[in-house]
Design a protein around this nucleic acid. Structure first.
Length: 1046
RNA sequence: GGGCGAUUAGCUCAGUUGGUUAGAGCGCGUCUCUGAUAAGGACGAGGUCCCAGGUUCGAAUCCUGGAUCGCCCA
């Protein structure tokens, strides 16, 4: 009869095993089968947040892909149809930057000289540079997703769906062109959206300056010649100072300062006098800001005349945004360079004068500084202010300043025309949609994400770039504007079929306005890539042009998962687009993942050289280990301190433990040619019933936790089960396995197979390998249904826990007494009452064997081993007595322990008197512990204790020696390289006492060591492996000869 | 400056609705067990639960303030 199972190496190469499983998946087309077999079942919808493939995948990508995989696998096993369409984010500045690097060019002029068509062709290629590596990694880590049918944001169909969405937004009058101050990257030549700005803050030291603005036409209680003191951290904006803003409600002070060069008078906010002017200042007058409105002053630079700004140029204006928190309480206003500035300018009709060109340099109006990058001019301007006597003070100012997230150029705030989506008008809907989402962790919902929505600003949609979805807006010189919602519509208007909707081809498509006949040309902008990805729920299916039914079936998503940094990225764009277009959230459950840092807590970066490449981990430990680490080492949202070794720990502690339990089963099943039947529901043996109950308990927990998107506690519950299985069930049941006990085999096999099903979503490789070898009734464990919860015996679970605790106490007592477990002892004396005693009595065989004692003797009180200690149970008494607890504790301490012990044993209640009131307390209200007793080998814990009778008689000593001999022979067998089932003949020689012991227990020795015969002659005539050893100082010579199998 | 989160043993992390002796794994030391297991078990060393106040009979846990770190926003 052939062996029932493939033999299993007890020291496996997990990565090699995984490769063979991958091969089997390919052969059997398991992923596809797992999806198609659920066709027609209720769907569970997952949306893939598309990565950009123009960089190598890192370990953080493995993190998100592991979590993106586990829940769809779980739901599939639960019977849901879980289609998983892959996706790629293809557009955007990162791609352009990469191509610019390849081409060695650095500006938009360069790109246009190079040619937009050719440039975009390069971008298209670049996007998929590392696609092969992405695909290879995706497959290797067992991330099941349909890569062949992945959506790509660059496809014409995808773009058309995006156009459709924009047209919906246009029709709702929520798409507009605004003239706004935007964060602008002068190098990339484009405005950045707020979520892009969020990516690039870094701490920098800038010059901050206090500057005198002399009053030339005073209003209110100030005089000509006084100086308005203003503060700014951007000296380069002073050249286009248009006005000074004050808060009309704030109190200002007119301050006299004695100086070496004479006295002077300055105006600052009263609250800031000390900070700005310092000591020695004399406040001459106090007044509200409104009192000095309209005051005219002399600007710091005269490149641009005051009249150019309009009537209110170079005057003091009221602005409610001004505070006394920093600076001077008087705010320099440069209309083109700040959001508040711009709004103030609009309010007072100031002209927008922007002397800074799109490349970030001054134009010819700024005289000697023309042509220089503005940030580089800061220092020269400060010097000029000092020379002209305008500078009050200059100091370094460290603050976080936004930089371009791709090219690191400091951003400028800059008034530019730009296209917006009026998300502020649907803020309430966005917040309502957010309420329908389950966030993991919970605090994101009303914390980070909720707060972000509360502070929502209009979505700056347009980018003056090349490689992106073109903004489908056409307009005439007369100002007529149309938003095109489909290729068909454009073709109908223009007569030109859209072949490639990208620039520059789409730019060439023009048409006559249907009414006026004016020529309509497309605006030059492309759109924010985040809109692309936010449109994926419908755009991935080319809905509504095709597959509208598919889209509707798969909207919204049940589950999405990305890293925390997507709060303002994809999480926002998905919610915003679907709220704009569909009026609701496009996802129901989100798992947010934290950042990965190295062992030292440092962010991983290429420049620091501390990046752990995913392949390194996979080659060393395998994909299951990688995934297991992410799932169970901690809750995923707080980030990981990650290293290759950290993954290895999980291999040793969990995967190898599971594997070796499996290897153990196969070893003995094959050795005994055992093919167990189905597991019994209620086996007779307590251990069998216990492990099955534990299995069912774990199944319940795992399903409950996975339903709550909590892989961590689900995984840890499985690890506990595997530990119980390996270190208690198998350990306690070994003899039954080598005796060929079919019930034990059936139980262990059932546990292992069920564990593979519970664990399959976590560790898809090792589980499939084990399943395939032990069961294999499906082509893969991933085609199985998730296990259902069977019968539990919670009483038995508790009893086993008590028995294990008792064993622990007994072993501890042995350790204290320095008596080896191999030496049998006569008696263990156990103190336990009530349920504990019942539990230990029921488990007496286990306790006796584990402790290697001949008998257990129970004593029900403390009489022999110590006295009782009674303590109040605060947990139950606290809520009842509240602030009387100190009195209760005192009353309990005053009780007679012997009487209380007797009362509790008989189930009676105890009376106590608190503040003259009588109360009764029961056994649950008291904690009974054993008090220590000097001079006895007793170990106690809580209310039970174990003591050992250490007296050894000749029989016990003899049996101990026999066990020593068995142990020595087993070591020799192992050293000789024998298989566990090999039979031997055994020769023993040496110390007479030892030989006597072996003779006395000959049947035991030969049975344990599989010896067909034992000879006690010295090694004459035997041929075999000889080993010498000493037992308690006595010599023993062992000769082993393998017996040829019959 | 504001928001969110974090801070528990040398390291990585748990810690239930507040309950009086704060746990686990790794690492270290001493023992021990072994017909699966580079495994397991027992014991030991190792903690001002970031700090300071407060609430409470009782705080790692709740509140306030502060420190440090991370992310985000100005």
């Amino acid at each position: 009869m052939p062996a029932p199972h493939r033999p299993v190496d007890s020291r496996p190469s997990l990565p090699a095993m995984e490769e063979s499983v991958l091969e089997r998946w390919r052969e059997r087309d398991v992923f596809r089968a797992s999806v198609t077999r659920r066709e027609g079942s209720p769907p569970f919808v997952f949306y893939e947040g598309p990565p950009t493939a123009n960089g190598r995948p890192g370990s953080h990508h493995v993190l998100s892909r592991a979590f993106k995989d586990i829940f769809p696998r779980y739901k599939t096993m639960q019977g849901f149809a879980v289609e998983r369409k892959g996706g790629w984010d293809c557009h955007g500045l990162p791609v352009e930057i990469e191509v610019e690097k390849q081409l060695g060019i650095t500006s938009k002029d360069d790109i246009e000289r190079y040619g937009i068509a050719e440039f975009n062709a390069r971008c298209r290629e670049s996007v998929f540079t590392f696609l092969e590596e992405w695909d290879r990694l995706t497959e290797r880590i067992g991330f099941w997703i349909d890569l062949e049918d992945a959506y790509r944001t660059l496809d014409s169909e995808y773009i058309e769906s995006v156009w459709w969405a924009l047209r919906q937004i246009w029709d709702k009058d929520l798409l507009y062109e605004g003239h706004k101050v935007v964060p602008y990257c002068p190098r990339c030549g484009t405005a950045l959206s707020s979520h892009e700005v969020a990516l690039g803050y870094r701490d920098v030291v800038d010059q901050s300056v206090y500057v005198r603005f002399p009053v030339v036409s005073a209003v209110g209680p100030i005089s000509n010649g006084d100086s308005l003191l203003i503060w700014t951290t951007t000296p380069w904006t002073l050249v286009s100072n248009a006005a000074v803003a004050i808060n009309p409600e704030l109190t200002y002070a007119r301050v006299e300062i004695k100086g070496d060069d004479g006295d002077e008078i300055v105006i600052v906010a009263e609250a800031l006098v000390e900070r700005v002017v310092g000591e020695g200042a004399r406040i001459l007058d106090r007044f509200l800001g409104s009192a000095i409105e309209d005051t005219k002053y002399d600007p710091p630079f005269s490149f641009i005349a005051g009249e150019e700004y309009g009537d209110r140029g170079h005057t003091v204006l009221a602005g409610d945004f001004v505070t006394a928190e920093d600076g001077s309480g008087l705010v320099h206003t440069a209309v083109a360079f700040g959001e508040d500035d711009y709004r103030l300018g609009a309010q007072y009709g100031l002209a927008v004068i922007n002397p800074v060109k799109l490349d970030g340099t001054y134009d010819e109006r700024i005289g000697e500084y023309a042509g220089r990058f503005v940030k580089d001019v800061d220092e020269d301007l400060v010097k000029a202010l000092r020379d002209s006597g305008r500078l009050w003070r200059a100091q370094d100012y460290e603050h976080a300043y936004p930089h371009c997230w791709r090219c690191s150029t400091p951003l400028l705030y800059y008034a530019k025309p730009s296209w917006y989506i009026a998300t502020t008008k649907i803020r309430d809907q966005l917040m309502a949609a957010n309420e329908t989402v389950n966030w993991h962790p919970e605090h994101i919902k009303h914390g980070r994400f909720g707060k972000w929505l509360e502070g929502n600003v209009d979505w700056a949609l347009s980018r003056e770039r090349y490689w992106g979805t073109p903004l489908p807006v056409w307009r005439s010189e007369a100002g007529e504007v149309m938003c095109i919602g489909s290729f068909a519509e454009l073709e109908e208007l223009s007569g030109v079929a859209v072949t490639d909707p990208h620039r520059p081809y789409v730019d060439d498509i023009t048409f006559a306005h249907p009414q006026s006949g004016n020529e309509m040309r497309r605006v030059p902008e492309v759109i924010d890539v985040w809109f692309d990805s936010g449109a994926m729920p419908f755009a991935q299916y080319h809905a509504p042009f095709e597959n509208q039914d598919v889209f509707e079936r798969r909207f919204p998503a049940d589950f999405i998962c990305e890293a925390l940094d997507q709060t303002r990225g994809w999480f926002y764009s998905l919610l915003a687009v679907s709220t704009l277009v569909q009026g609701e959230s496009s996802y129901k459950n989100v798992v947010c993942l934290g950042l990965i840092v190295d062992e030292a807590g440092q962010k991983m970066s290429k420049t620091k050289g501390n990046v752990v490449a995913p392949w390194e981990v996979i080659d060393q430990h395998g994909a299951d280990a990688f995934r297991w680490y992410y799932f169970t080492s901690k809750q995923p949202w707080d980030g990981y301190r990650f290293s290759v070794d950290a993954v290895g720990e999980g291999v040793r502690q969990f995967l190898l433990q599971l594997w070796n339990t499996y290897a153990f089963y196969v070893l003995y099943a094959n050795a005994g040619e055992v093919v167990p039947g189905p597991v019994e529901q209620q086996p007779a043996d307590d251990l069998d019933r216990w492990i099955i109950s534990r299995l069912n308990a774990t199944t319940e927990v795992v399903a409950e936790r996975l339903d709550a998107y909590d892989a961590t506690f689900a995984g840890r519950a499985i690890a506990e089960l595997v530990d119980d299985l390996s270190n208690w069930y198998v350990r306690r049941s070994r003899r039954r396995f080598w005796d060929g006990d079919l019930v034990a085999f059936a139980t262990l096999r059932h546990c292992l197979v069920t564990i593979t099903q519970l664990l399959a979503p976590f560790c898809p490789f090792i589980t499939d390998e084990i399943y395939d070898n032990l069961d294999g009734s499906e082509a893969s464990v991933h085609l199985c249904d998730f296990p259902t919860v069977g019968v539990r015996d919670e009483v038995l679970e508790v009893e086993m826990a008590i028995a294990r605790e008792t064993v622990r106490l007994g072993l501890k007592a042995r350790g204290q007494a320095k008596v080896k477990v191999r030496q049998p002892l006569g008696e263990a004396v156990i103190v336990a009452v009530g349920k504990e005693r019942e539990a230990i009595e029921r488990m007496a065989d286990i306790v006796r064997e584990e402790l290697n004692v001949k008998a257990l003797r129970f004593v029900s009180g403390a009489d022999e081993l110590g006295s009782l200690e009674i303590k109040p149970n605060y947990r139950s008494l606290g809520p009842r007595f509240g602030n009387q607890m100190p009195a209760v504790a005192a009353a309990v301490a005053a009780l007679d322990t012997a009487q209380v012990g007797a009362a509790l044993r008989e189930g009676r209640e105890i009376g106590i008197t608190i503040d003259g009131q009588d109360h009764t307390i029961g056994s649950d209200d008291l904690l009974v512990a054993m008090a220590p007793l000097e001079g006895y080998e007793v170990e106690r814990e809580g209310s039970h204790a174990v003591a050992l009778d250490l007296t050894l008689d000749a029989d016990l000593r003899c049996e101990g020696q026999a066990r020593e001999i068995v142990h020595a022979v087993q070591s020799a067998r192992k050293n000789a390289g024998l298989a566990v089932e090999d039979r031997i003949t055994l020769g023993l020689a040496g110390d007479g006492g030892l030989l006597d012991a072996a003779r006395t227990h000959e049947a035991y020795v030969s049975g344990e060591t599989l010896a067909t015969a034992i000879s006690f002659d010295d090694d004459q005539g035997t041929v075999g492996v000889v080993e010498s050893t000493t037992i308690d100082g006595a010599q023993l010579r062992i000769t082993i000869t393998a017996v040829a199998p019959a």
